[in-house]
């Protein structure tokens, strides 16, 4: 049986790992390659590296980092941040990334999803969605959560699915960084409405939150950052706990 996946996410700025709370206020959390290796040894099923530097110089540094990650890490990893066109995808896949994640650019130019799927295959294309519950339902946000759009979360996720996305990475901005659990109701609806895997993101604080993302939210994978970076939840302990409830790779 296919296992549920645990995915540590590393936000990268100027070559080091950082993690924000509610997308503001950054704290350093270590060397990205050492951290990635450690997670891999501890049983992480995949890794996500997000480039949160926007400058041209920063992008070059990140591509070099991706090359080194690919040389040293023996599990799949996804990279994201600042991907705007097919050329960016090509550059990062060439550097050795297994998948790329697109967010704002996909909402601005949805046909980018079709292009990536056609050129490189759906399996490399993760569409990340930052969304927040508003008076008018779940709305998608751009630019790291700074800009609200008219797009409805569920409609957009369906469209991304139909355009050829391989996975949806859904971050609930209300839940992110506050450690009160994932947005399980929205997750469950996404999982029911989509034909591709859904990765839960935002809200993990204790082991039970991961369990609920799988058993209540029906997510295929759960992503988290600070609970791993600061050693609050060791991955081996988490996976042993989860194996009581769902299929887990131990």
């Amino acid at each position: 049986m296919l296992a549920k996946r645990i995915i540590p996410c590393l936000d990268i700025k100027d070559g080091t790992t950082v993690k924000g709370t509610n997308f503001v206020g950054l704290r350093e959390a270590g060397d990205p390659i050492e951290l990635g290796k450690l997670y891999s040894q501890q049983g992480a099923d995949e890794l996500v590296y997000l480039d949160i530097t926007a400058s041209h110089e920063g992008r070059k540094t990140f591509t070099q980092l991706v090359t080194r990650i690919a040389e040293e890490i023996n599990i799949p990893f996804t990279v994201g941040g600042g991907i705007n066109e097919l050329q960016d995808v090509d550059r990062l896949l060439n550097a050795g990334a297994d998948k790329i994640s697109i967010n704002s650019a996909a909402i601005r130019h949805p046909e980018l999803i079709n292009d990536i799927a056609n050129h490189f295959g759906s399996q490399v294309c993760v569409v990340a969605i930052d969304a927040k519950q508003t008076a008018n339902g779940w709305k998608c946000f751009l630019n790291g959560g700074r800009l609200e759009t008219e797009r409805d979360l569920f409609q957009w996720a369906r469209e991304a699915n139909d355009r050829g996305a391989g996975e949806i990475l859904f971050t609930s901005m209300d839940h992110d960084g506050v450690k009160q659990g994932y947005a399980n109701e929205a997750l469950s609806r996404l999982s029911a409405e989509l034909s591709i895997p859904v990765i839960a993101s935002g809200g993990a604080g204790v082991k039970e939150h991961f369990r609920d993302a799988f058993t209540v939210g029906h997510a295929d994978a759960a992503l988290a950052a600070s609970v791993f970076h600061f050693g609050e939840i060791p991955i081996p302990e988490l996976k042993k706990y989860l194996a009581q409830y769902v299929q887990i790779r131990l």
Binding site: M1, L2, A3, R5, D45, S122, Q123, G166, E167, S191, S195, I196, P197, H218, D220, A221, R249
Partner: peptide, 28 residues
């Protein structure tokens, strides 16, 4: 819940080849 592509870790069973020497249980 059977999504396509299959993406992720699954076990290999009934292994019979030198490729799988050294494994004592179904590995992911």
């Amino acid at each position: 819940n059977q999504k396509v592509p299959q993406m992720g870790w699954n076990t290999i069973n009934d292994t019979k080849s030198k490729l799988f020497e050294g494994f004592s249980k179904p590995e992911f």
